[in-house]
Design a protein around this nucleic acid. Structure first.
Lengths: 341, 341
DNA sequence: TCCCATCGCGATAACGTTGTCACTGGCAAC
DNA sequence: GTTGCCAGTGACAACGTTATCGCGATGGGA
């Protein structure tokens, strides 16, 4: 079957082997493989027979080296395993498939250096495009040369830092504003906020929306009702202890993301108090919990699809100016609103 | 299209450009880039300066064409966005990163033809390895030539069909056997089973475990208590209608996967009856629901890690025989056991 | 002094494709 | 009978790397 076992498992037949076996020129094989027009029936048949006999399959890497593009894009998120990002990844992957592109995926683990390494590794593979959810502390000037060289980069969920680049974001502030409005309408005056680390763009935006809406409604922005940080059970517990103590405890709480919501829920289930809870980011089964959790739903799949669509439009030559697309949130009330003293 | 307009945005400097600018030979640049030993300090410095000045970054694709391997693997699952597969994908991706490999990801959407196309597309890119969760109706003989050519394939969650290949599976039958045992111990005699389509390997195995354990316990295998099919709300409703009707309704139910569990939960929340429910596959917040849902927990991350580890061992030359690794499940009782008439 | 082993470096040929161009016939038009 | 054109074909160079090998310059031992 194989003659020279150069690589692990023996080597594959090449176009040259096919050409030799079929007794035709190399270029003719190439033409047949690519379905180019100027080939006679007889030749094409001979070539196809040889391909069949050898089990030849074209080496896409070599083709793409020659052609100068790779027909693949890279997706970089914080953590592939996180349901929010995997929904996003699913949408990007679908778009890639629809365009006959392949998709590289990697997780930055919220580490700016790892993000940089992976993004540059993608670029070294000469991906045509990049979809990036930036890590918190990242500075994206490292991407400048790559973008100049023709790589199309689209940032998702959080904007790029240090360079001008397309971004597809959620209307974070609008989401928390709506949540505050909702809770005020239900009669709450003491509304706490527990969010992710303030360096994270989305966390900062959501906090901003919370504060803005309170002030717009004539209520004070009370720092003692706010806790920002990674949603560790311990820190959430401490924050809740504080917010629930004293003469004027919170009666409602906004959780800044789904991890936090879950942690808060677990913690609250150990306490006697009942709080109205609004969580940012919907999660499965939120409707089955009791009391139901009102959520600010955003749409990771829409985020993914929108960014991939924009990326592919650019790959197809669209030259419009750098743009930021903001995707609306939707408040889903689930009857956690009333004050239950 | 002229050859220079081939690449969008301007072309990148190559090793040749660096060599010319530094006034050295091409191979010397290569040596510096790859940190090979035999280069004088002075030369290396000149080369590094030129690299810096031009903003050169090596073309990994060209390097790998020459070297004959690509340092990437492909992961093919049913749906990247499904939390079960994304947990698996996360583990595979971590392993790839640890080995300095890049990871292609794609979704077969449970379609054998699409699985085949994507797997072959990966192979055309000359991935070094493949991790595949096969689609239900797939026949993997199409992979034979690729495996002969040296591609390492590991199947996860479901075994390969038509070829001998490594597989990493969950002990599905053991899981449902444990669930039946658990429910019997709680005093249930009428235990229903709602599972996914019977063509799916895992669904069939789980059903087998359920039946085996019933028979082993001297109970009949009653077909009217079993419903197999895609977990659509409508079909689950019909199944539950049937199982809850008549003189001897079920008092306990086993749901064959997480999608089914969720659908069943939604449906049950609209009914007056209370059933003991055991779900295959844990899911977030299962502990916060009331009554708590007992689950047969398996571990998608372990599945992913184990298969990736095996794949990389093979890539490093391990030649052992084809193996099937089975990963145990763990029953997590969450107090849904007692009969509540 | 000579010899040979090493070191440092560069020409050149691969890797497996595709683009360019030149060549051959055949056939219609002059 | 030229001419021109076009369909069909293959030789050859490129794409951006790495491997091989050869060559001049050292340097140490005989």
């Amino acid at each position: 079957m194989s003659e020279n076992a150069r690589r692990r498992g023996g080597s594959r037949p090449t176009m040259n082997d096919v050409a030799r076996l079929a007794g035709v020129g190399l270029k003719t094989v190439s033409r047949v493989v690519n379905g180019e027009p100027r080939v006679s029936k007889a030749m094409a048949e001979r070539v196809r027979a040889a391909i069949e006999e050898l089990g030849y399959s074209p080496h896409e890497g070599a083709r793409l080296l020659r052609r100068g593009q790779t027909a693949c894009i890279g997706l970089l998120v914080e953590d592939v395993a996180n349901p929010f990002y995997s929904a996003l990844a699913g949408a990007v992957e679908r778009a890639a498939r629809a365009n006959n592109f392949l998709l590289f995926t990697a997780s930055s683990e919220e580490d700016a250096e790892q993000e940089r390494e992976l993004a540059l590794a993608f670029c070294a593979r000469r991906v045509d495009g990049l979809v990036i959810v930036p890590a918190a502390a990242a500075d994206h000037r490292y991407l400048k040369p790559e973008i100049d060289a023709g790589v199309v980069a689209v940032f998702v969920d959080r904007p790029a830092v240090g360079i001008a680049a397309d971004a597809v974001l959620t209307d974070n502030a609008g989401g928390t504003r709506a949540a505050v409005t909702h809770l005020l309408q239900q009669g709450h005056h003491r509304i706490g906020y527990i969010g992710d680390a303030a360096e994270i763009f989305t966390a900062a935006e959501r906090l901003r929306g919370y504060g803005d809406e309170l002030l717009a409604s004539g209520l004070p922005f009370d720092e003692s009702l706010v806790a920002m940080g990674h949603p560790e059970p311990q820190s959430v517990r401490t924050a809740l202890d504080r917010m629930l103590a004293g003469p004027a405890p919170v009666t409602a709480l906004i959780a800044g993301n789904n991890r936090t919501t879950v942690t808060v829920l677990r913690d609250l289930s150990t306490r006697p108090q009942r709080l109205a809870l609004v969580g940012f980011d919907d999660f499965e089964l939120a409707d089955l919990l009791s009391p139901g959790i009102t959520v600010i739903a955003h749409d990771p799949a829409a985020l993914g699809k929108t960014s991939a669509d924009l990326l592919f439009r650019r790959l197809q030559g669209y030259q419009g100016p750098v743009q930021t697309i903001e995707i609306a949130t939707r408040l889903v009330p689930r009857g956690s609103g009333e004050i239950t003293p």
